[in-house]
Design a protein around this nucleic acid. Structure first.
Length: 422
DNA sequence: TCTGGGGTCCTAGGACCC
DNA sequence: TCTGGGGTCCTAGGACCC
C-alpha cells in the first residue's frame, strides 16, 4: 500500500503557523510579483476565489479586510517543508518527496489497522511539532492514494486519514470523483473525456483497455491502470535535474536592449549558481523573451534561441555570455517585453564536464572564472560581503522591482526575525 | 495599472545514417 | 515515367504536475 501525505493549503498554513490569529479567516498567498492566487484557505475557497485568480481582481475583498493576502515567502515554505519531511523520513520506510507539500511513503509489515493508526499519529505529530495540518490517503496505487487523500481532506469524519483498501470502497470513491480531478487528467484531457460522456473517475476506469490505448496513449494508460489498482507510476529518479530555469515577469514592460540585457544576465547568473550548487554544468543555454500575452492590442512575439557550448560550463561568465549571445539573436527593438528567462539544459556532473577531446578554451582563464564564481557564491546571501556580480548585471538584487507588498517575515531562517519572535 | 514560476515526459516529424 | 527500407537522434510543441 502507498500512503500520500499532502499538506493542507500548504502556503497559507505556513503563514498561519506563526499567525494563529489568522485561523478561521480568509487568507490567500500570491505568486511572484503579487500576480495570482496560488494558495487559499478553506474560507477563501468558500468565498469562491479560484486558484490562479489575478490579485487585482480581489480588491473588493482586501479593501474591507475580508481577505488577507500574503506575497509568497519561499524561504519560509521551504524550511517548514523540510521539517515536515524530516518527521516523515523518520517514521516511514520509503519516503519519496514528490513536491514541496507532498510525499509518498510505504510502511512494511503492518496490518491495515496498524497502518491507519500510525498515519493518524503522524497527522497529529506534524500538526503539533510543525504547526502544519496534513491529510494522508492510503491505497494500492499512487493515483488511488492521491484520491484517498482528497477524501481525507474533504470529509472531517476521516480525521485526516482515508484508507481505500477494498474493491468496494475503490468503486464507491471513484464514482464520486469527477474525472477532471484525477491525477494525470489535466485541463485538455478532462473536457475531452467529459464530452465523450466520461464524467467520473469510475467511468474512466471502466473503459476498455483498447479504447484507452487509442484515445489516451501512454500517459493515459498509466492513469487507467492505476485507477484499476495496478501499479504503473514509477518512482521518479531524483538524480541531477535535467534542466534549470530562472525567469521573471517585469513589473512594467521593457523595450530597450540594455534593460533586457541586465535582466537576462541576472537570470543566467542565477542558473549558473544553481548548477554550481548541485555540482553540475550545462552544455546548452536558452534565452527567451515574451511580450505581454494579455495585451491583445500589442504586437506579440515569443522568440527563443539556444547556444550550444563546446563544453559544459557553470561559471557566471560563460553562462551569462552564452545567454546574451542568444538574446542578441532574437531581440527586436520595436516590441514591448513583459517576461524573460534563461534555461540551462544538457546537464552533466561537473567532473564529466572537463572530459572533452578538443578543448580550445584557455585553462588559465577557466581557472580564474571558477575562482571568481566561487567568490560570488560566498558573497551570495552574506550581507557582510555585499553584492558581488558581473558588470552587465543589474545593480541591487535581481528580485528588485518585483512587487512583494504583503510579505511575512523569515520567521524560521533569519536570526533577526527569530529574536523578534521569541 | 495590475494576470507566476519551475519542472517532467511523450510524440511527431525532420535530419541524418547505412 | 519509374525513385527502398530500416534505423537513430534531436527538437519543438503539447500535455501534465506542483
Amino acid at each position: 500500500m502507498y500512503a500520500l501525505v499532502d499538506c493542507n493549503n500548504f502556503f497559507v498554513s505556513c503563514e498561519r503557523a506563526f499567525r494563529p490569529d489568522l485561523e478561521g479567516k480568509a487568507v490567500v498567498v500570491l505568486s511572484n510579483n503579487d500576480g495570482c492566487v496560488v494558495s487559499r484557505s478553506n474560507e477563501a475557497k468558500a468565498m469562491g476565489i479560484k486558484m490562479g485568480t489575478p490579485f487585482f481582481q480581489l480588491d473588493k475583498y482586501t479593501r474591507n479586510g475580508l481577505l488577507i493576502p500574503f506575497s509568497s515567502n519561499y524561504t519560509l515554505y521551504g524550511d517548514l517543508s523540510a521539517r515536515v519531511m524530516s518527521i516523515l523520513a523518520e517514521e516511514s520506510d520509503h519516503l519519496e518527496i514528490y513536491s514541496i507539500d507532498e510525499a509518498f511513503f510505504t510502511l512494511e509489515g503492518l496490518t491495515l489497522e496498524d497502518l491507519e493508526a500510525h498515519c493518524r499519529a503522524l497527522v497529529a505529530r506534524i500538526r503539533q511539532w510543525v504547526g502544519i495540518p496534513v491529510s494522508i490517503g492510503i491505497a494500492p496505487t499512487k493515483t488511488l492514494a492521491k484520491l484517498a487523500s482528497h477524501f481525507a481532506k474533504k470529509y472531517k469524519g476521516y480525521r485526516g486519514v482515508c484508507l481505500m483498501e477494498t474493491e468496494q470502497k475503490r468503486r464507491k470513491a471513484l464514482g464520486m470523483v469527477p474525472v477532471t480531478e484525477v491525477w494525470g487528467i489535466g485541463r485538455r484531457l478532462g473536457p475531452k473525456l467529459q464530452s465523450k460522456g466520461i464524467k467520473t473517475a469510475l467511468d474512466l476506469a471502466d473503459k476498455k483497455r483498447d479504447w484507452i490505448d487509442e484515445e489516451l496513449h501512454k500517459p493515459g494508460l498509466c492513469t487507467w491502470l492505476e485507477l484499476n489498482g495496478e501499479v504503473a507510476v514509477e518512482e521518479e529518479e531524483h538524480e541531477a535535474r535535467k534542466s534549470i530555469c530562472t525567469s521573471r515577469s517585469f513589473a512594467t514592460m521593457l523595450s530597450r536592449y540594455e534593460e533586457l540585457r541586465e535582466r537576462v544576465s541576472d537570470f543566467a547568473a542565477s542558473c549558473a549558481r544553481k548548477l554550481r550548487s548541485e555540482g553540475t554544468a550545462a552544455r546548452k543555454v536558452t534565452t527567451f523573451i515574451w511580450t505581454n500575452r494579455f495585451r491583445e492590442d500589442l504586437q506579440q512575439y515569443y522568440p527563443s534561441a539556444t547556444i550550444c557550448l563546446p563544453r559544459a560550463e557553470n561559471s557566471n561568465q560563460e553562462v551569462v555570455g552564452a545567454a546574451l549571445q542568444a538574446l542578441k539573436s532574437i531581440y527586436r527593438p520595436d516590441v514591448l517585453y513583459k517576461k524573460a528567462g534563461v534555461i540551462v539544459h544538457d546537464i552533466l556532473p561537473q567532473e564529466e564536464a572537463s572530459q572533452v577531446l578538443f578543448d580550445e578554451g584557455d585553462p588559465v582563464l577557466r581557472e580564474k572564472e571558477a575562482v571568481l564564481s566561487a567568490l560570488m557564491d560566498r558573497a551570495h546571501g552574506d550581507p557582510r560581503l555585499g553584492d558581488l556580480r558581473l558588470a552587465v548585471q543589474r545593480k541591487g538584487h535581481y528580485a528588485e522591482g518585483i512587487r512583494r507588498e504583503h510579505c511575512s517575515p523569515l520567521y524560521t531562517t533569519s536570526l533577526d526575525e527569530i529574536i523578534k519572535v521569541y
